[in-house]
Design a protein around this nucleic acid. Structure first.
Length: 426
DNA sequence: TCTGGGGTCCTAGGACCC
DNA sequence: TCTGGGGTCCTAGGACCC
């Protein structure tokens, strides 16, 4: 038997061990590194674009950040404007405030909590940092946004010890020693269970779940704990008197299919039984890029024409800049509108060639906008570019006769976008 | 006083082609 | 003149996630 065969045979006997790692109150914890004097206080991160902390820093320019008194920070009750909470510290969560809650509602629950705006640059810096620490220990890492990853422990030396707990401890300790941040991990046979397990001992906890534990530890949980069952599915499940994951598991697969559709019903049945074969995906290409903004006040297409037009153009320029910076081009240009009643509309248009050009995007987006009834006031406007390929890919560089034809047609069919004779806004 | 911004994936109908 | 089925692309909306 060759060495290869031996290692292969050994690999076959290994149990799949997947970890889910979730940073604890990530956005807030990053701010607390800067302002340690706020540790233990109710702090909320979120809200609008105003740089509250820059004002504070300017006021106390002579003091190090860590010596600015806590009393200098703005209170939630004094907050004005739109926006939601991104993260609340555990002290703030005691008041019932949490992620995605509107700022105004949060202000009623925790008026004396402190508010800080999101510092995306700082957050992204720490995000890259903690992920690089993980990759040095266990290379198979799947990105799930700024503050979460899945990690495949299966083939990592020591990844099987105590079901993965030893490696989880090492990662947790390394991240804390180097960044000062804490995280929680769940280790399980697959991503679905690992994701649930990482919540079991939050914050700064580790939880190991085996296949045989599904009945005891997963089935008692509410249906909403399954990653993929959201508010709508939860309501429907409750109407059918299914409250826990075990309740779903007790149903016939066909019954779930009848009630939730072929794909979703079957998936739900598998999920309730803890079955999930999805691999840890370490690399992926973006499908779309977008920019959107909610206005300070609702705007009307006719009455606020100039303001809206400027915002629209700026959004197109931002998406174009994002595409160019990251080296992508796309051929489906789309817009998103949210009206004052929160109804949302989207329109898109696939053009004959790939582009990352702000003017081309602006033109196509303008065409989309013409197809929407703009009598209602708007609270949000967005621009998206989809069907992306790499700018240096063959698909983009190959100029096919089809491409030539459609762009020629476009340029003939649509003369001057900002034509004087068509005084419509867009 | 409601409800951010950036994404992915799925569904379903119609167009169009073979 | 009537009658097919399959495959792919496009578009709009919606659920869900971080």
């Amino acid at each position: 038997m060759s060495v290869n065969q031996i290692t292969q045979n050994r690999a076959v006997t290994k149990t799949r061990r997947i970890a889910h790692l979730d940073m604890d109150a990530f956005f807030a914890s990053v701010e607390l590194l800067r302002y340690p004097q706020l540790k233990g206080l109710a702090v909320v991160i979120g809200g609008g674009r105003r740089k509250v902390d820059e004002i504070i820093r300017a006021q106390y320019a002579d003091l190090p950040l860590s010596e600015i008194p806590a009393s200098a920070f703005p209170l939630l009750k004094d907050y004005v404007g739109r926006g939601v909470i991104t993260t609340a510290t555990y002290a703030a969560r005691q008041f019932g405030v949490g992620s995605a809650m509107g700022m105004m509602k949060a202000a009623r629950l925790a008026p004396n909590a402190l508010v800080l705006p999101v510092d995306f640059e700082e957050v992204r810096k720490y995000s890259r940092w903690f992920k690089s620490i993980i990759r040095e220990i266990a290379p198979q890492v799947e990105d799930r946004g700024v503050d979460e990853v899945y990690i495949d422990f299966t083939e990592v030396p020591g990844g099987q010890r105590e079901g993965g707990r030893v490696l989880a401890r090492l990662i947790q300790k390394s991240i804390h020693e180097q960044t000062g941040l804490t995280c929680s991990l769940g280790v399980a046979p697959n991503k679905l269970i690992a994701k649930m397990a990482s919540e079991f001992n939050k914050p700064n906890g580790i939880s190991v779940v085996h296949e045989k534990d599904v009945q005891d530890r997963i089935w008692p949980l509410p249906v909403r704990k399954i990653n993929g069952i959201g508010p709508k599915a939860e309501i429907k499940l409750h109407k059918l008197h299914l409250m826990t994951i075990g309740d779903i598991a007790a149903q016939e697969r066909d019954w779930l299919v009848d009630n939730f559709g072929k794909a979703y019903g079957a998936w739900m049945h598998d999920a309730a039984w803890g079955r999930d074969e999805r691999p840890v995906v370490t690399e992926s290409e973006p499908v779309s890029m977008s920019r959107e903004t909610t206005f300070e006040r609702d705007l009307h297409a006719a009455r606020d024409r100039a303001e809206l037009g400027a915002i629209f153009t700026a959004l197109c320029e931002q998406v174009a800049a994002d595409l160019q910076r990251k080296g992508y081009v796309g051929k489906t240009i789309g817009i998103k509108l949210r009206f004052d009643d929160f109804q949302t509309a989207t329109r898109d248009l696939t053009i004959g060639h790939f582009t990352a050009d702000p003017k081309a995007i602006r033109q196509a987006a303008g065409q989309c906008l013409k197809r929407v009834d703009l009598s209602r006031r708007l609270r949000l406007l967005g621009v998206r570019v989809g069907r992306l390929v790499k700018a240096d890919s063959e698909e983009n560089l190959a100029v096919s006769p089809v491409n030539l034809t459609s762009s020629a047609i476009n340029s003939v069919a649509e003369p001057g976008l900002e034509d004087e004779r068509t005084p419509q806004l867009f």
